[in-house]
Simulated scan of single mutants.
Amino acid sequence: MEQLAQQEKIKEKVYGKQKIYFADQEQFPTISDPELKQLDAQVSELNSQVQSAQLSCQQLETELKELNSSMTTEDMMREIKDLKEECSKYQQKLDKMKSAANHVTPEEKEKVYSERKQFCKEWKKRKRMATDIFDAILEGYPKSKKQFFEEVGVETDEDYNVSPPDI
């Protein structure tokens, strides 16, 4: 910096132990107001070009990220091959199921559903009867319902988080 100051390309000011260097304003040509306005217009035009170039760059970077995150052609071909193999396995399994001789007839199906319905009704009926009996016993019992069940050894549906299904 001192060398540039000696060559009078920049100016130097000394403030105690500190030195400050700055550009020599006299070496720059004087610019008129119209020229300054023209330069300002050029600066704003160049700024707008920079902004549009940055926007374009961002769009291209986004597109590049999308393309890099997508599968390559080889990966896609491998995936298609794997899916076709899986599809053929499922097709074979479906064909086996269709050709199986152990189909359930509609009559058998209806019989199973009616038995299920009957058993569910019976379950609810018996649960209601047991609840009525327990309530009658508990009217004169000095301890809580939970303590009574523990003493007698009763296990309820609620202990196992089950309930009779809706019919």
Results as ranks from 00 to 15, higher is better:
136 A>W: 00
54 Q>F: 04
84 K>D: 13
156 T>L: 14
97 M>F: 08
114 S>Y: 06
31 I>G: 02
2 E>A: 04
35 E>M: 02
40 D>N: 12
45 E>V: 09
35 E>N: 09
58 Q>Y: 01
66 E>A: 12
23 A>W: 00
140 G>N: 01
162 V>Q: 14
108 E>I: 12
69 S>F: 08
40 D>Q: 08
140 G>A: 03
124 K>C: 01
72 T>K: 04
19 K>S: 14
14 V>D: 06
88 S>T: 14
48 S>Q: 12
76 M>Q: 05
81 K>L: 10
131 T>E: 00
36 L>D: 12
159 D>F: 02
102 N>Q: 11
135 D>C: 05
89 K>Y: 07
90 Y>V: 15
81 K>E: 15
103 H>F: 07
58 Q>W: 00
19 K>L: 12
151 E>P: 09
55 L>N: 08
128 R>L: 06
37 K>I: 03
117 K>G: 05
159 D>I: 00
79 E>T: 02
83 L>Y: 07
86 E>I: 03
97 M>R: 09
116 R>G: 04
33 D>V: 06
8 E>S: 06
9 K>Q: 06
158 E>G: 05
75 D>K: 04
75 D>E: 15
158 E>H: 02
120 C>T: 08
109 K>H: 15
167 I>H: 09
129 M>Q: 11
62 T>G: 06
61 E>S: 06
162 V>C: 12
32 S>K: 06
122 E>R: 06
118 Q>L: 06
130 A>M: 12
147 Q>A: 11
165 P>S: 12
